[in-house]
């Protein structure tokens, strides 16, 4: 397994860890009562903002830990450059990820249009975001594994 494949696997693991762990911690703290109260919007605004910060910090930590463990375990140096193939794989993976994000956004708007409460819309957008990250990382792994 190449360095890039291992890195993609670690990214998949990181996304599951961050999204799952944070959702398990935050979702039970959703405000009860009126589904349209300002508290609901405040909760989801805070949820997304903190998720962005936590996600960046945890990803940096995971990336550093991966680099160290990878060098110790494989004695293989990290490639010092990204070439045309890396860029193509990244572009195509991001494109698939964006499709999923767009799908999540449309589903969220459809949920609102059908009269569902705002929390359903936010939840669908969140799922779209997580799904987008996962599809992007999984596509990257497959492209490196299968060839491009």
């Amino acid at each position: 397994m190449s360095y890039q494949e291992r890195r993609a696997l670690v990214a998949i693991f990181g996304t599951i860890l961050i999204s799952g762990g944070y959702a398990a911690y935050m979702l039970p703290r959703q405000p009860n009562g009126d589904a349209y109260s300002p508290e609901v919007f405040r909760f989801w605004g805070t949820y997304f903002l903190i998720l962005i910060v936590v996600s960046i910090i945890v990803r940096i930590v995971i990336s550093i830990a991966f680099s160290i463990i990878n060098v110790i375990a494989t004695r293989e140096k990290e490639p010092g450059l990204t070439d045309e193939r890396d860029h193509l794989i990244e572009l195509r993976s991001n494109r698939y990820g964006l499709y999923i994000f767009a799908l999540g956004f449309v589903a969220a708007m459809a949920a609102l249009a059908m009269g569902n409460p705002p929390s359903t819309m936010f939840l669908l957008m969140l799922l779209g975001g997580i799904g987008s990250e996962l599809v992007s990382d999984i596509s990257e792994f497959i492209f490196y594994r299968r060839g491009f």
Partner: peptide, 10 residues
């Protein structure tokens, strides 16, 4: 060639 070894392998 200015690419990674993995690209040559591919």
């Amino acid at each position: 060639a200015g690419v990674t070894r993995q690209t040559i392998v591919a």
